[in-house]
Design a protein around this nucleic acid. Structure first.
Lengths: 224, 224, 224, 224
DNA sequence: TATGAATGAGGTTTCATTCAT
DNA sequence: CATGAATGAAACCTCATTCAT
């Protein structure tokens, strides 16, 4: 995890040949799912490997058939979800209208967050201590943030946003708003109100309005 | 994350008789300071008690003269800073102008956050696992957020803010923006730029402008 | 001695999942045997867990696969021997002749004691501090003593024993004699003389005669 | 205590100059009294030195002004009571009548036991582990037992007791009866019934009758 | 591949003992 | 003489990891 934990892990070769049979695949998936749910429940650091194997319905030893250690399990969990998390670009073409683009970015971010709320919490916990996870989380945050920064720059070039403002700070602040709000609503104080699709739409819209207003853009027609 | 961790937490009161002499006070303070810095460096869960005593310059046993266990140390750290963290209301009277009030709330929040950035990070880590710390963090977040919600409600009553928007959600979103931005700038990717007093003023102003704009308030004169 | 010690005793059930395979059974048995002999040698309170595992030929951790702590080991030892200790009633029908009945009770008590002399000593040590062990010892003592009290009452009804004496006190006194004598001969000052079967018979006979005489019964024919 | 505990006690010189002032005497006495009562309550091995000093109303360090360690405290307790315990020979001349002599021995033993019941329990606990205490207890038991053995021998010489019986075994058995009965009534299951002076007389008489009968002596006139 | 008992390094915790005040 | 915080050796206990089956 970091160099502090290494004394525990002496000379680790990766599991040389990870099983690939269909049974193996099933076991591996069960372990990952179990780990994900236990991590979400007890927190990463308080989770024992035996908690995971127990919930996965297999023996302790089996975990080592697929993973080198706890961190490796975490990495696998994240890798599994990463595709959706990072490349959350919807297939359709990016809209022209910058306001629509902002709303779209928010929608994609919020939906992906909600679907993987437990993972987001997990990465938050671990990134305090594990550099690679931290890197991953930052990369994801940056992806969102830079997408937004680009939109803002564009809007400034087009004369819609006060050009004296630092587009990076703006993007950072507004991205922070969305990400923390998601954390708050989906992880920290999970609020049944925001689990329904309708209310999620409300959330997306409200956030986008705030965002638009904050930038001083003319009110989008959605709001009327 | 939830109460599952509480069985681990035996008692939250300090050892029966804690030394109170001046020497005792010094040792206790040294332990708390040491713990705070080690926690910030290695993370709460990866810190061993001997890391703390070593940095405090005393032997392992001494820690147990003052604290029951690691969690008790954490509690003490937080209690020590709590005063500043919760009662961060500046002495002067609350300004009349709601916009000024918002800026003031932001200033106080941001200043307190920066002063205790390490603690904020610490509480973030631990609140996934410890219900009482979590409660503390939520209380603090709520204090900030409710103060803002009140200002927003007032602005709505005065016809300055679109009354169709949920003031709670607005307050939550904007408070989230500030708190996460602080985390990002002061903890996650500590940026030397924001350590100076001047640039902190910039930050406070920018955030407040964003906030004001987001609510659709007439541009305050600060911005000019 | 009283219940003051119970706060120290967290849980009396064994670890959640105790191995039950044949190898597991062997290890467990080895630990119990080792513990029994170390306890006998060094005394319960001076025995450290590593003494036990060392003698059992396994590592410290293994003990915790089967037991929660030292006390749990003790409980297991006692439970293992308990059957023999409590239900030491021989299969044959209880003799009619009260004198024969007394001798039989003494024989059974003395034989069981000798077989488990180390355990008896152990229980003596621990019952000062552990309420449940104490209860067990008292139960055993009472089983013997009440059996005897019944015989004495009968003898009083039949006019063979002075009815003015309290049968309970008599039974208590005479039971005490046997139990303490056993302690003295088998535990305290183990005397090779009483280890042979013959001399144990002598012991049983002498004790029974004393007992019979003490009650003022006509000399049984055994004595001639 | 024995060689197992010695690693803890490195190079112990006795407290070179034990205070002898009147204040010192009082402190020392308070410590001994406190230790005696705590030992009785929690058992010797479960007692922390701080339990003792706490109850004595002084600080931990003070204990070391008077004693070298816990064992030393125990020794002091016992020495204080020893006089009464060992030389419990009443001043009057030993009676001629062997039956009276037996009763007298029982009375003295029982009275001394009752007065020091907690100590007797203590010595029982510790003698499993500490050779010197064990020696002390055995010496005391032997004193009683040999006194009785002499009486029995005499009675055999005078033709009052069956000479084929082993006087040592008889004495041992009967002494055991008294001592264990005392343990049972005064320590193990303290019975209010036997705390009054009257009932203690009953006890003494009953025991002596049993004893007399067991030896086959003519019923003493006391019993009528 | 799966199993799960065994391992033991490493952390936590206790408490007898010391010693500066 | 008394104090009580500091000490640290030594015990306890956990759990990631291995490996024979």
């Amino acid at each position: 995890m970091n160099e502090r934990s290494s004394p525990r892990r002496p000379e680790h070769r990766p599991p040389e040949a990870v099983p690939i049979g269909s049974k193996g695949q099933r076991t591996r998936a069960a372990l990952i799912a179990a780990a994900r749910s236990v991590f979400a429940e007890k927190g990463y650091f308080e989770t024992k490997l035996s908690d995971i194997t127990e919930r996965a319905g297999c023996s302790t030893g089996t975990l080592y058939t697929y993973f080198r250690n706890r961190e490796d399990v975490l990495t696998a969990i994240i890798e599994g979800a990463q595709e959706r998390m990072l490349t959350s670009q919807a297939p359709g073409a990016e809209p022209f209208d910058p306001v629509a683009r902002i709303e779209r970015a928010n929608r994609e971010y919020i939906e992906a967050y909600q679907e993987n709320a437990d993972l987001m919490a997990l990465m938050d916990q671990v990134s305090h201590v594990d550099a690679s996870i931290r890197e991953l989380r930052l990369r994801r945050a940056r992806a969102f943030f830079e997408r937004n920064a680009r939109s803002i720059s564009e809007l400034q070039e087009q004369g819609h946003v006060d050009p004296s403002l630092d587009p990076y700070l703006l993007a950072q602040a507004l991205s922070a708003m969305v990400s923390r709000l998601c954390f708050h609503l989906f992880v920290d104080v999970p609020d049944a109100r925001y689990q329904s699709e309708d209310s999620r739409e409300d959330l997306i819209r409200t956030v986008s309005v705030l965002w638009t207003n904050a930038l001083g853009l003319p009110r989008s027609s959605d709001l009327q």
